[in-house]
Design a protein around this nucleic acid. Structure first.
Lengths: 307, 307
DNA sequence: CAAAATCGTTGCGGCAAACGCAACGCAGAA
DNA sequence: TTCTGCGTTGCGTTTGCCGCAACGATTTTG
């Protein structure tokens, strides 16, 4: 059952005459006649009453007429959906991130994006770095935010920002008085550090081995939230990149001090997606936004550091 | 937008490969590729991700896929209406059920339906719950019968009936003398239980964990038929909802006794179909019949329980 | 890491289906 | 009855789809 046949039939039925339909569609009358005849042959039912001057529908014709009406309204709804999608009024985005990114930075970015594109739904999955890479690779996530680079060949790093690990503590903590801390300084304080499964702790481990200074945390956790809260409480210090505590740093409940250790100063965060994946519509737009924000934030930090 | 283009696209997307679609449709791969490309040109959107070995839909592709699904189900409904109109009362109905429903209840219902509508052919597929849901979702089945609810968003639960799990045994079995059994009681008997893959066993597992009583079946099977036969033989007891053994309960070769365990007493069966699917003609009528029978049967059980 | 196996894409010749034009048959109005 | 205007049908033309085969790219395999 071709749509053109149905369309010709529909127009002829609507206008009550093949000739009017011919004018409207811009097709010879003969074609319309033939298409309708073919439709009847395919369906095995007469759609219009023959031997009559005007187009008069049979009962089957009426059923078919209504069916095509339904098809058209269906198609219109579909085109609207598609239009919405292309105008970024609809769509779904999946982002996988490490828990460290669950701060003001990301949430504000998404907030801003969603206020501009209200119909777009965003899913944020908090996972380990390995799982993030896995999900980006199998297209379960459109993009991901991870610490450090990733050497997977099929991962494209869309943006990278310097994101040195900092010592975070409450403003009145002794560490807050120091301009910068060494690992040696750090080992003096009560530490709250992430679990060995987290990338940050792995980076710290490398630094410890290099300097042969061993950090013994009083509190170990897989939750960045716990780390921030432990530091805010006052007694403990923790180690995180600034992006993991933007809100607290802005409101002053935590302060950040640099660490003197080459490998920790040059850590980065990366916005990644799968190499070769075609992103369009909402995911592409959010990706660009994230990229711009990340670069802007990074540049801003650079300026501050230069002051 | 031609239907053939859509159809080729739909098949390729369903099968995940143009080549498979080519085999299924009986058309050269090149045609399929061209038709899809043309569809994309007409719509101005990429439907599948290029530069990739397998067919992978973009978001727009997914929209289009769903649209065509809707078109097909619409067309089927139309054809059923047309058949009804022509008094042929012909049609096809596909039902997917769990094995537990393969009892007198369903067969009698379909028997009655077919005696009223002789031209209608019915296909019953016995599958796992997950497969039932899958087939209902992709319109391979008009409706399905499953244990418990299903939280798929695109599934509509047309009817739900309380369907407590019962202890089934032969009339002369010691368990038949008891008004109701606890899990503790149950563990005393020789048990025939379904395999862990079946929903019933999963429910039992939950109950076992909760009460910390572990049932150790003498016989484990994936076949509900085997369970009924094992119980009928006399030595064993089994656990099933009544609907799975209506015939045996009616003829008295099995008796049912309730189980004292909250989660097992409130299990349900659901008659489901795909949300938004327009059912017409024979499928719609059988669905209504099933719904009514299910409700009547459920109410009947309620009365009996009240007695 | 290179070679093999597939998979989707593209160019070309063939062909069926749809088209326009024109002649025709027939219903209904004058 | 005649005449007008409708749908139908015959014929030559054209458009668009198809199959075949070569090609480029990607994933798998040794």
């Amino acid at each position: 059952m071709q749509v053109t046949s149905l369309h010709y039939f529909y127009q002829a039925a609507s206008l009550g005459s093949m000739r009017l339909a011919s004018d409207k569609i811009g097709v010879a009358v003969s074609s319309i006649s033939r298409q309708i005849a073919q439709l009847e042959r395919e369906m095995g039912v007469a759609l219009i009453e023959r031997g009559r001057r005007t187009i008069r529908l049979t009962e089957a014709g009426r059923l078919t007429y209504e069916y095509y009406q339904g098809c058209m309204s269906n198609e219109e709804a579909f085109k609207n959906r598609l239009h919405d999608y292309r105008q970024l009024k609809a769509g779904k985005i999946d982002i996988s991130i490490g828990e460290g990114f669950l701060g003001g930075f990301l949430l504000e970015t998404i907030e801003g994006f969603q206020s501009q594109h209200p119909g777009v739904s965003v899913t944020i999955s908090v996972l380990s770095t390995a799982d993030i890479v896995k999900r980006v690779l199998d297209d379960s996530a459109h993009c991901g935010l991870i610490f450090n680079d990733c050497n997977e060949p099929k991962i494209r790093v869309r943006a990278t920002a310097a994101q040195p690990l900092m010592v975070l503590c409450a403003p009145h903590h002794p560490a807050a008085q120091m301009d910068a801390l060494s690992l040696q300084d750090l080992s003096q304080f009560d530490l709250c550090l992430p679990d060995a499964a987290l990338r940050i702790r792995q980076l710290l481990r490398d630094a410890e081995r290099r300097e042969e200074i061993w950090l013994e945390p009083k509190l170990t956790t897989t939750s960045i939230y716990v780390m921030r809260e432990a530091a805010k409480a006052g007694r403990m210090v923790t180690v995180l990149p600034k992006i993991a505590a933007t809100t607290e740093l802005a409101e002053g409940s935590l302060v950040a001090r640099p660490i003197h250790e080459a490998s920790l100063e040059y850590t980065t965060v990366s916005l990644i997606h799968r190499l070769g994946r075609q992103l369009d519509g909402a995911p592409a737009r959010l990706l660009s936004t994230l990229e711009a924000k990340l670069k802007a934030w990074s540049a801003n930090e650079g300026e501050r550091a230069a002051e």
